[in-house]
Amino acid sequence: MYIWLKQIRAMEKSKKPLSDRLPLYALIWVLSYVGSLGALKMLSLPEEFEVILTIVPALAFALFLYTFYRYVHLMDEVQIKIRMEAAVVAFSLALVTVMTLGLVDIAFKLNGEDWNFRFLAPMFMAYYLIGLVISKRKYNIDHEEHD
């Protein structure tokens, strides 16, 4: 954690382009989430430590989101529209997932080990990536015949 903070501070000082920092912050967020998840599941820690572990991924995500928000200002209008549409696809799919799971839970009483909130985070990320693929195809972004 301290090493990450040192690295983040060094990157902010180095004035590296946001496009370079963004993947690193995304990686920090994912690793902090997976790390916290693993630690909370496998280790028996004091309650204060568990609270810290639940907050760390949220802080890492906030840092990623803030950097992403700044990066959006550097994008052109096609890139912004692609991200916007990807977010719309992700939000819609996430809403349907939560709604369906809620109804299924009433009907069949979901087993906590089979289905719980932990599974939603990677699913929502996957939904955003699906949205990106759909939107990029729509706007011909990956089409390479260009000169």
């Binding site: 209008e77 096609v78 529209k81 706007y139 011909n140 972004i141």
Partner: peptide, 22 residues
């Protein structure tokens, strides 16, 4: 004009309608 190559590709192929400024 300060956009990505992909943006030009998209506009040229009529997949995206640019803003007035662009």
């Amino acid at each position: 004009i300060g956009v990505s190559r992909q943006a030009i590709n998209s506009i040229e192929a009529s997949k995206f309608v640019p803003s007035t400024v662009l």
